[in-house]
Design a binder for these strands. Structure first.
Lengths: 346, 346
DNA sequence: ATGGTTTTTGCATACGTATGCAAAAACCAT
DNA sequence: ATGGTTTTTGCATACGTATGCAAAAACCAT
């Protein structure tokens, strides 16, 4: 009898429900001699239950390996504890850092992250529609856009939408968290002018990006204000290859080469630095000043030592999460201050 | 009457359920004059329903903005379509690339990604326990470890666990996908020897990492086989700062400096290259050969041009997903071949 | 038109949990 | 011990969907 392995296995399984899946609150209730309600209450903070029953339930639950089914809980609670994140730029460390930070901060609040990806400069409509059917508690869009119709649909369902590092033309379509694009661009313009740069160029991100637009506008305005002619403009589309090609375009003709270049983010600026060095033999900071935006960790690496304007990721993430928590005090658009970080490229 | 805005608002809301949340299948059924079952069937591939009813339901659903509640669906279907991913290394591009790839491949199969983070060299037990209560369909562990007891609990619940770029001592505790650590390390040893390197060093990852162990063992074995003395060994713990400090340790004394260094991954190798250059004035590839592991995109950047052994991310991800799909044909451990990528550092 | 076959439909119920409500139990002051 | 108050408990039901089953409808060949 002791050798009847299949019998033993079956017995063990029968402790749980019939399909060898995870045990339910009913299983625990039966074994603990209480009602299913009691089991539910034992796992609910502050529920009406005596310490004794809670302990008994906990013991049995432990024995069976019971954990409440969050799907079922979400169904009755009408809230899922899940935050949908739509993500686009895995190649840019600024965003992977922010994602890391988001997952971490959210998890400390008992919130989970359901991750979606959007094509680089596409709108996140498809992903957000999908997120709606997961009944997420909130949506975070990291550098992706959203149509106003879908934003309205989220609003109608009381699902807050936070746009991270992006703004939208629409009024109050979503919460927004951004760095100080205007101040940063202006600070970099000042730096270029103060260090005697005169043939200034700008490398844009991609067209649908509000950050690129705002940085460009403020940069151009600051230069115009100082009486400079309009700078040369190339587009790197926030990609490495785009930035490399844009840099080649800028320096192709040996005459009229720029002596200063502001790239709309660090990721492109680093590509520009490398291209200037290896393809044109230029020394960034001497032959041509280079500045970026974000202050990603890589900007401080000795290979680059990039001058840039910082976007404090931790703080931006904290602000975004405050929106979700409804702790933003009525604000809908938050701008986080950064600072000019001078290194050796400008 | 037309000015009675609140009345209008209330009316609009009443189309949906009472709490201004998303409409349900019952709402759609009522308006379309069919049963809730019909609505469910209209949204179920291959269900028994006439084209006419399906069209009518679709029209009403569209009008109301109805989407099936996936939480409820998961509850009845006993499967969630959600894959839990536990992630540790946001700083190493190899893993962010892999994560991007995972999310993409999974989404094309209708699977969603619930993302958790684990402390760098910690075990993922807490996260996996949490994942169990979300009734995920599978768990992917990216470079994190899992206790055998929790692996057993997953097995008991029929939840496949895939360890990505990590193996476990336990037999059959989980599926594993790895690169060819042994072949890669051996290839790099050969390269060092063939190019006349004699004072060879190795930089390990962290102690709990099977990849670091396997690369070290094969590297040491290959050198021993060629009659070399045991190489110097430092540990960079797979972090940038660790790698920088380890490099300083290696080159601190001007005598007995190594003339070749194999780092257990590219991320550390790049930090080593920078440190050698900027702090010791050495030219990687000339004064000291440097090799890494992974072939992350950055390894090909002109600033580094790192010789390395590749781990094809796409293929590794595809293999991991095959395990989840049960399409692995009974295999439990898969090793993906890479190749030695010669650039200028070795 | 008939009777048989196939398709479509709705009813009833299940999935696993949370919770309002009333009943039961425990407590407590006298 | 009593009656009142507070705490704890279980019952019943809801959350929103999927699906087996039987009934209804549609189809089809003669």
């Amino acid at each position: 009898m002791l050798l009847s392995g299949s019998h033993v296995t079956k017995d063990t399984r029968m402790i749980h429900s019939r399909r060898s899946s995870l045990p339910t609150a009913h299983d625990v209730a039966r074994l603990a001699g209480v009602s299913q309600s009691a089991v539910s209450r034992a796992f609910t903070e502050g529920a009406s239950i005596s310490a004794k029953t809670r302990a008994r339930v906990a013991a049995v639950a432990d024995q069976l390996g019971y954990r409440p089914n969050i799907l079922a809980r979400s169904l009755t609670k009408q809230s899922s504890n899940v935050i949908g994140v739509v993500f686009g730029h895995f190649d840019n460390p600024f965003f992977t850092l922010a994602l890391d930070c988001f997952v971490d901060v959210l998890s400390h609040r008992g919130l989970r992250t359901l991750l979606f990806t959007a094509g680089t400069n596409a709108s996140a409509d498809a992903q957000v529609a999908e997120l709606l059917s997961y009944r997420v508690s909130a949506v975070i869009l990291m550098a992706v856009n959203l149509s106003s119709t879908l934003a309205a649909e989220c609003a109608r369902s009381n699902i807050p939408v936070v746009m991270f590092n992006r703004t939208t033309g629409e009024e109050h379509a979503a919460f927004t968290v951004t760095g100080d694009n205007a101040a940063g661009a202006a600070a970099i313009a000042s730096r270029f002018l103060a260090t005697g740069r005169r043939r200034i160029a700008f490398m844009a991100g991609y067209d649908d990006s509000s950050t690129s637009h705002q940085r460009e506008a403020a940069f151009f305005a600051a230069l115009a204000c100082a009486g400079m002619a309009e700078p040369r403009r190339v587009a790197g589309n926030y990609t490495r290859i785009g930035a490399i090609e844009a840099t080649r375009g800028l320096f192709a003709s040996a005459t009229e080469r720029p002596d200063a270049l502001f790239c709309a983010n660090d990721f492109m600026a680093i590509a520009a630095i490398e291209t200037m060095r290896t393809e044109f033999g230029l020394v960034p900071g001497r032959h041509c000043a280079v500045a970026g935006f974000d202050d990603i960790p890589m900007a401080a690496w000795p290979s680059f030592l990039l001058t840039t304007y910082s976007q404090p990721v931790d703080l931006m993430v904290a602000r975004a999460v405050a929106f979700i928590d409804g702790e933003a005090g009525g604000a809908r658009d938050v701008m986080v201050q950064g600072e000019l970080i001078l290194r050796s490229t400008a």
